[in-house]
Amino acid sequence: MNGLPDLRVKLGKLELKNPVLVASGTFGYGEEYAELIDLNKLGGIMTKAVTLRPKEGNPPPRLVEVPCGLLNAIGLENPGLEVFIREKLSFLRKFDTKIIVNIAGEKEDDYLQIAKRLSKENGVDALEVNISCPNVKEGGLSFGTDPKVIYLLVKRLKEVCGLPLILKLTPNVTDIKEVAKAAEEGGADILSLVNTVLAMAVDVDTQRPKLGNIVGGLSGPAIRPIAVRMVWEVSGAVNIPIIGMGGIMKAEDALEFVIAGASAVAVGTANFVDPRTPLKVIEGIGRYLKDKGIDSFASLVGSLKVQR
């Protein structure tokens, strides 16, 4: 096989130049990382969550490093929808990559208002609906665990917004397939799997929680096998594409997700560790396809060989 393998991928109406995105909350609004890597090379950028009004976030400490992982309770700190549109989106628009805005709310109407407003803006390619943040009291996770609530939320969002809708699901449920099916029935175009795993760490000297918010979300390599398992389960239960994420540090990790059923992947916590990770993953996937003689990325998706 000659030349570079074709890495383009179609997630329904959303077409990416390659299957590697950066995950919400780990890349800000791209400004900081633009100084370190060429954002034009990314398949897409999933922004830090945007809420209707500015959000201050949780009290410190907000981060704790744990074995092979990171526990965080940022609490969706963000400047709010209007500042996002004025300052952040106008910056992101300059790049030749897909801009996926992660939106979060405290009640259904918040999501609807944000979606309506963003669907009128240039430069938004899709919305990622955050119904799975473990670090805010109202909304967030509570939206993400009840299939009926999810179905209705997605249905109403589809009525007000023509953009591709990506539902970001939480792993903190008994059966993620039920939640995924509800999102699909409501009309979701794509699923993101998974958000962080609800977790906690205690300082035994002070007998206090290590996070200001007491509990937080675990990310990083520690959760990768959980995320891969969930992608595998959900890919067998729905017919919409999946973006796999959870502890991807290198191309092999991304390929695990793809072979298990993800049509694209997102690099998250690894952006903190090595900002070049997404670019390395893109290169690594290309190399893998070439070495294996696979001529298109799409044929690798869900190619897991299982002896039944």
Binding site: Y33, R62, L63
Partner: peptide, 22 residues
């Protein structure tokens, strides 16, 4: 000093309380 995530301002993990917010 504070425990940091990204170190470049993106993750908002290393905040302290200032007079006008974090």
């Amino acid at each position: 000093e504070q425990r940091m995530g990204c170190g470049i301002g993106a993750c908002r993990g290393c905040i302290i309380r200032g007079k006008n917010g974090y």
